[in-house]
């Protein structure tokens, strides 16, 4: 594992939020790697699995708030896929490498930072538990 957190960021919400966080000089974990996607609904299970295969410690999928998806149902699809991916990981006995989804709006840089911190905390806790 390389300790990285791969964050798939929707370009209509999480990506501008991350941008804003940078402009405001907010601090978030340096292990976070942002991948800009046209919609959270574009992120497939295989993208999440491959990120983990390449050594990521966790995968974040960040999409629009409920009812605000630019592509109508992309965030709902993304949530289902995250759930499915989590089930696939449990099936092979891999825990402690979380795949989590958060919803946020483009003007919520603090929520972006909170999501990044939260997943870092989850990874830390699961490492300590082992």
């Amino acid at each position: 594992m390389n300790g990285r957190i791969i964050a798939f960021c929707c370009e209509h919400s999480a990506y501008p939020a991350a941008d804003l966080a940078g402009k405001l000089g907010l601090h978030y974990p340096e292990t976070l790697r942002i991948i800009r996607v046209p919609c959270a609904g574009r992120v497939d299970v295989i993208h999440m699995l491959r990120a983990l295969e390449k050594g990521a410690s966790a995968v974040l999928v960040l999409g629009c708030e409920d009812g605000a998806c630019h592509h109508i149902t992309g965030n709902i699809r993304a949530r289902e896929r995250v759930k499915h991916c989590d089930m696939l990981l449990r099936e092979i006995g891999i825990d402690g490498r979380p795949v989590v989804m958060f919803n946020l709006s483009p003007n919520a840089p603090h929520k972006f930072v909170k999501a990044a911190n939260e997943i870092t905390k989850i990874i830390k806790e699961s490492r300590e538990a082992r």
Partner: peptide, 17 residues
């Protein structure tokens, strides 16, 4: 094709663990 990708990835992850 999708399920092939997922199963192969699961196998690789499980075996690598």
């Amino acid at each position: 094709e999708k399920e092939v990708g997922i199963l192969a990835s699961q196998l690789r992850l499980a075996r690598s663990a």
